[in-house]
Amino acid sequence: MMSGTLSISERIFGDVTVVSLDGRLDTTTASDAEASLLSLLGAGRQKIVINARNLEYISSAGLRVLLAAKKKLGSGSGDIRLAAMSPQIRNIFAITGFDRIFLLFDDEGQALASFS
């Protein structure tokens, strides 16, 4: 397996955008992820579900990207919610307190339903 790669794909469900991350969200790939998220927010797509089913790894650089996007949203009706994280990544969210900043769901369907 090659490291240092992250595939980002987007699907639209009404006013919610699902962003699937496949690979590693780290120093090498953080700028790509940040550009994608900020582009969505800039286009008015403010309800975002990040599907982390195929996210293998996240470092502090990746956490910063998510935090920056969340701050950009402000206090409107939009939000960034995450779904289907591996136990290791969920643990990273727990020990950093990010599980109190972001709503986390077991699967994409639950995260989508939370916006309706």
Binding site: S60, L63, L67, K70, K71, I92, I95, T96, G97
Partner: peptide
């Protein structure tokens, strides 16, 4: 890490904490 107000969270030091 206990700060729940994201506007008051400073990301610096997160790497060393991890």
């Amino acid at each position: 890490i206990l700060g729940n107000d994201i506007n008051n969270r400073q990301p610096g030091g997160l790497g060393v904490y991890l």
